[in-house]
């Protein structure tokens, strides 16, 4: 039992189950999934479907945070990617032309990769703090997205493009399949290949990683590019779902939700060990929270209040300082532990 409670996915999983249980209590048919016109429908499917962009962005954010960084620009990249794709499609003579839509997707994702690489270059190449480096595109990127759409909401009417965010394939929403594919790819890259270990190593101890021969600069740039790519796909999904691109509001605050999902999932903001499963759980907690509030009849305006509550509780429970102050009341207070670094000499190059 203690082992279960100690497991690092225990708290996010518990919160998710609690939320689902609350839903079942208020909406008896909550868990049912039915087949209509060859498509699966149901509340659970909806949670996945609406949560898909967030899960995607959070997956990319997980890797960035694992390197000890953070990416604030993902919301802007979401907007830019959707805007560029919609702009290209709206200029096509035949908006259903698959080749044209694929070009649009390629352009959007290409630009996202460039923006991500730029972030990575600022962080790893120039050595700017990640939070500041990515602030630049967070601010300028919104302007860029509006520049692309000329401040308008660009609407498209393309069945092929609609598939990405609103379509079905093999009875499942296509967006869920995309998320599963990206998740599988990320899991493959990080856990089957050695990317995950090297990333955790950089985030865990950058100096030691360099002395072990890891090329952290290139890896860091790649991780930021990958994060932006995920945001780019999420941007396509969001704009495709509503068949329009809104440079101003698409992906607004998604970076905060994504960071939140990563933190709820048990990955430390200090970098190091990360958990993709935890991140997906975290994103689902956030999405389920929203759904729950709608379904049990609490005014939707209060979503943010609950979010604040969840962030505070999850972060406090995971904070070592909080645990020490609140849970370890019994027994003698330990004398101030020697700082880990104090014991050994630190060589200071003159």
């Amino acid at each position: 039992m203690t082992a279960l409670v100690r497991h690092r996915l225990f708290w996010p999983a518990a919160v998710l189950l609690l939320l689902l249980a609350a839903n079942v209590a208020f909406t008896p048919g909550f868990l049912s999934i039915e087949m209509k016109d060859g498509h699966l429908y149901g509340s659970l499917i909806d949670i996945f479907r609406f949560g898909a962009p967030l899960i995607l962005v959070a997956i990319g954010m997980t890797l960035v945070i694992a390197t000890g960084g953070i990416d604030l620009s993902v919301g802007s990249v979401v907007a830019i990617s959707g805007a560029l794709a919609c702009l290209h499609i709206s200029g096509l003579p035949d908006q259903n032309d698959v080749g044209g839509v694929l070009t649009a997707v390629g352009l959007a994702l290409g630009l996202a990769l460039v923006l991500g690489a730029w972030n990575g270059f600022l962080v790893a190449g120039i050595g700017i703090q990640p939070i500041i480096a990515t602030l630049i595109i967070m601010v300028a990127g919104r302007g860029l997205a509006q520049l692309i759409t000329d401040g308008q909401i660009v609407t498209v009417n393309s069945a092929s493009y609609k598939l990405i965010g609103g379509g079905y394939w093999l009875t499942l929403p296509f967006s869920i399949l995309i998320v599963l594919a990206v998740l599988a790819l990320t899991a493959f890259l990080t856990r089957r290949l050695a990317l995950g270990m090297l990333v955790e190593s950089i985030g865990g101890n950058a100096t030691a990683s360099r002395l072990a021969g890891i090329r952290s600069r290139g890896l860091t740039v790649a991780v930021y590019a990958f994060c932006a790519l995920c945001a780019g796909i999420a941007g396509l999904m969001i704009s495709s779902n509503v068949s329009s691109a809104d440079g101003n509001n698409a992906g607004l605050w998604i970076e905060l939700d994504a960071i939140l999902a990563v933190v709820i999932g048990g990955t430390s903001l200090m970098g190091g060990r990360f958990s993709l499963g935890g991140t997906v759980l975290g994103a689902l907690v956030i999405q389920t929270l929203t759904t729950t509030i709608y379904s049990i009849g609490i005014p939707p305006e209060t979503t943010l209040l609950f979010k604040a509550l969840v962030v505070t509780v999850v972060c406090l429970v995971q904070s070592p300082a909080f645990r020490e102050k609140v849970f370890q009341r019994r027994g003698r207070r330990r004398p101030a532990a020697p700082q880990a670094t104090d014991d050994e000499k630190v060589e200071v190059p003159a």
Partner: peptide, 17 residues
Amino acid sequence: SENRRAEGLIPDLTVRE
């Protein structure tokens, strides 16, 4: 390195890693 903690080990990784 003589400075195991600062320059050698990645404390969060396993012995194998």
